[in-house]
Design a protein around this nucleic acid. Structure first.
Length: 511
RNA sequence: GGAGCGUUCGACUAAGGGUUAGGUCACCUCCCUUUCACGGAGGUAAUACGGGUUCGAAUCCCGUACGCUCUACCA
């Protein structure tokens, strides 16, 4: 048996965490835990120009919320620290030097504008065998020229020499054998002018140093795989290379292409796991968490986007996912994201969650909506009454706020279509009866008792109860929704019910 | 342009040479519900196209089309 399974998620801290990223984390995590291995978080902050303060913390907060905490990370440390590539900067140069010494890489002194000019001059310009002799580098220049440039501290990058017409293939855990002709990829930069490695060098060096056994990443990385394979071959030996798996992409719900932050804004659903505010632009992006998703539901729906266990089962806990997960059942093709189905997953998880737990989860949403919850037990009771009609935690506000304060918006239009004098009389009598019950001290009638009383009163007024139910409901909750009318009264109690009826009656008489 | 990868109902997917191509979301109908939901019962709806191989193809092979990704001193 091989050594212990070690996988890593290696994001660059440039902004909020997209659900595609969360799914990459998930598959890493599931694979690691399924095999009793370790999951490492490594921060790839090699591009200083794109560094966004707070993004790293956001990533860690998101993983914590999702319940996908790493075994090793910049925050918790580990045997292979540091886990931030910017703090590992000095490590990479020696490998770049080694590649140059071994003839696999070279210095290139071209300035950004040199490259830009070249690209403008030659359509589809590639820095490769065909053109590298036209450029300013240690292949085209004499040894003396190169030494002079280096001595004068001329900025340079290190580029890999892509061999010509060498077929490179590897076994992708998801796709099977994939092969490339090395001539189709250019001489990638390995070490930048600022001394930082590019992704290509850093990923190989760090995966080696951190003893990564399986490397998962998005499908968009497939075309650069030959560079990484070559680097493994040159630096550490191809036999030590981790097993690669390129994950399918999460696509836009309509049209084509990768799901992006913009799609969420356009179509009105979250794309980031949690709220994210860009510290530079102050732009706010909504997250699944704040939209009212349970982390279990987000994990569940992401797992089923591109994977299934081969049965009809769709609801999985994280432990069930760990037990069942296998890369063989991960799809090759991308999957379109469907927000309706996402909400269905959340609804299923709301149903699975106890009322007590839901109460603590829902409470912050009530606080944000400035709805005061005096008694936690009352909130639990309300949740029991409305939970079946909630898809999102935020639905507990729209479905439940009237339990805490009388509605101010009353759909009087719906009452007025069939409103008549005798109904007015009925409700006036009803408030009278409620008043009498209150003064008798009978403040806690059951829903069943209230219904019996209501029907009896309707009979004396010679009105069918059915003609009264809808207006009654609207008076109590403001609109055509909510649980049973008498259960509502039982919950909000008689005094409140009476006041709501009176308020609506006043509105109606003004119309 | 080049390279790589992909393609089953509108969406997520099952079926790995033999099924009336199954399930879930969405949509429609009905039942339940004196509201809205939940729940229950039904329904509409798919193997991109063209060639092979085979007694038999969604499944294997070839071609075509379409789509996606990459083609930065970004990851």
């Amino acid at each position: 048996m091989d050594s212990k399974v070690r996988v890593r998620f290696a994001p660059s801290p440039t902004g909020g965490l997209h659900i595609g990223g969360v799914r990459t984390v998930l598959f890493n995590y599931l694979f690691a835990k399924h095999h009793g291995g370790e999951f490492i978080l490594r921060i790839e902050d090699t591009d200083q120009s794109r560094f966004v303060p707070g993004a790293e913390q956001y990533i860690m907060d998101t993983l914590a919320w999702c319940g996908l905490s790493p075994d090793e990370s910049p925050a918790v440390g580990g045997a292979y620290a540091p886990y931030r590539q910017s703090e590992r900067k000095q490590l990479y140069k020696k490998y770049a030097d080694q590649l140059i010494a071994d003839g696999y890489a070279y210095y290139a002194f071209d300035t950004p504008s040199d490259l830009e000019n070249k690209r403008n001059e030659i359509p589809n310009f590639q820095y490769n065998k065909a053109h590298r002799k036209e450029m300013k580098n240690s292949i085209s220049l004499s040894e003396n020229e190169v030494n002079d440039l280096l001595k004068n501290n001329t900025p340079y990058v290190v580029r890999i020499i892509m061999p010509e017409q060498e077929t490179l293939s590897f076994n992708d855990l998801i796709r099977g054998e994939v092969s490339f002709d090395t001539s189709t990829v250019d001489d990638k930069v390995l070490l930048k002018a600022d001394g930082m490695p590019t992704y290509h060098l850093a990923v190989v060096v760090d995966d080696h140093l951190m003893k990564i056994t399986h490397a998962f990443r998005g499908e968009e990385w497939l075309p650069s795989a030959p560079v990484h394979i070559l680097l493994w071959k040159y630096l550490f030996g191809i036999n030590h290379m981790p097993q690669w798996a390129h994950l399918p992409l999460i696509l836009k719900p309509e049209g084509h292409g990768k799901l992006s932050k913009r799609d969420g804004e356009r179509l009105g659903f979250p794309v980031f796991a949690m709220d994210w505010m860009d510290p530079n632009t102050k732009e706010q992006t909504i997250g699944f968490k704040e939209r009212g998703f349970l982390p279990e539901a987000l994990i569940n729906l992401l797992a089923l986007l591109g994977w299934n266990d081969g049965t009809d089962k769709e609801i999985f806990s994280i432990d069930e996912l760990i037990a069942q997960f296998s890369l063989e059942r991960v799809h090759k093709g991308g999957a379109k994201f469907d927000y309706e189905k996402a909400k269905w997953f959340n609804q299923e998880w709301i149903k699975k969650t106890s009322n007590d737990q839901l109460a603590t989860l829902v409470k912050p949403f009530y606080d944000d909506a400035q709805i005061e919850v005096h008694e936690p037990a009352y909130l639990v009771k309300v949740i029991g009454l409305i939970k079946d009609r909630c898809h999102l935690l935020t639905d507990f506000i729209t479905q439940g706020s009237f339990f805490f304060k009388a509605p101010t918006e009353i759909d009087t239009a719906s009452i007025l279509t069939k409103w008549e004098e005798k109904k007015q009389g009925f409700f006036t009598a009803l408030t009278g009866d409620y008043e009498a019950m209150i003064s008798k001290g009978d403040t806690q009638p059951t829903a069943a008792d209230l219904e019996i009383h209501f029907k009896a009163l309707a009979a004396t007024h010679e009105i069918k109860p059915g003609d009264l139910m809808l207006p009654f409901r609207i008076m109590l909750v403001g609109g055509k929704f909510g649980p049973g009318v008498f259960e509502i009264i039982q919950a909000i109690e008689l005094k409140d019910a009476k006041e709501r009826i009176e308020y609506s009656l006043k509105l109606l008489s003004n119309k």
